[in-house]
Design a protein around this nucleic acid. Structure first.
Ligand SMILES: [Mn+2]
Ligand SMILES: [Mn+2]
Ligand SMILES: [Zn+2]
Ligand SMILES: [Zn+2]
Lengths: 143, 143
DNA sequence: AATGAACTTGACATTCATTTTCAATATTGT
DNA sequence: ACAATATTGAAAATGAATGTCAAGTTCATT
């Protein structure tokens, strides 16, 4: 049992939820997926393994993971993407407008300035997304 | 005729579009609106003036404004918001998760670091959105 | 092992923002 | 005025996300 698993099972128990194979399937596939993923692609990924799963269950479980603090969402390209939050460090994104490729980066200085400005504006930050759209090196060259 | 108007009319002409009263209505209301606005609220705003306008026309024109470089979009709260781009300086956002209030801010240092990192990752930035979600001062106090 | 209250599941329906369709109407160059 | 082409908006279509509910499952208690 990884720390995430322990954490999740504890969370479910406290929330009065019962154990279920379907929920575990979604949770496990999410754990295996290091990159951010949309609900639909996670659904596909589980189905392709030959597992039986409903779309609603995937959505529901992903929402639960967010509520439990294990996942967080970022929206781009008209879709919600889920990414790890538990034991994963925060990052911002470059997103290629042409091919959709994403590049993660972090800048402690940017984070620091954000917090300083939040204080200045009497704003209590909870989460943020910095998405920089443009062209990745491949798409720059191919015209 | 403001610079924006001249620019827009020139753009339309070059694109082989005909002049139209409906398009002008949307364009003018967008110009009058300093804050970012959703397609639906812009639609309402025009209707409330007693003007006759279709939803599709509002959407179409807003998309055209983006294509012409006069407007740009930012997505949050499950809606696309349109904001000025022409002759308006860029800014990032604090967004209150509770009441939806937005606070604009700018940080030249953040912008500079973004560009430096883009170079480092061989990425050509075109636009970006930095959205910081949290609680505004009012919503912090009210529980 | 049986019970039953409460939770889970997934096919299907619904909602909501956005886009597309298309027939009627308007604009523009000649 | 004419014809070619663009515009309009009501209605339909799309697509992501959420809600519904009857049938199935879990689990604490007996
Ligand atoms: Mn960040
Ligand atoms: Mn910025
Ligand atoms: Zn690319
Ligand atoms: Zn607020």
């Amino acid at each position: 049992m990884t720390k995430s698993e322990v954490y999740f099972q504890k969370y479910c128990r406290r929330a009065g939820l019962k154990r279920s194979g379907q929920r575990d399937k979604v949770f496990n596939m999410f754990l295996k997926t290091e990159q951010h993923i949309s609900a639909f692609r996670l659904f596909e990924k589980i189905r392709k393994q030959g597992e039986k799963i409903g779309y609603s269950t995937v959505y529901r479980t992903l929402r639960l993971l967010v509520k439990a603090g294990l996942a967080q969402t970022l929206t781009f390209g008209g879709e919600t993407h889920f990414e790890h939050k538990f034991k994963h460090k925060h990052h911002d994104y470059f997103i290629c407008s042409k091919c959709g490729k994403t590049i993660e980066f972090t800048s402690p200085t940017i984070e620091r300035i954000q917090n300083r400005l939040a204080k200045k504006y009497n704003f209590t930050p909870q989460k943020h997304t910095l998405l920089i759209y443009g062209l990745c090196i491949n798409c720059q060259n191919k015209q």
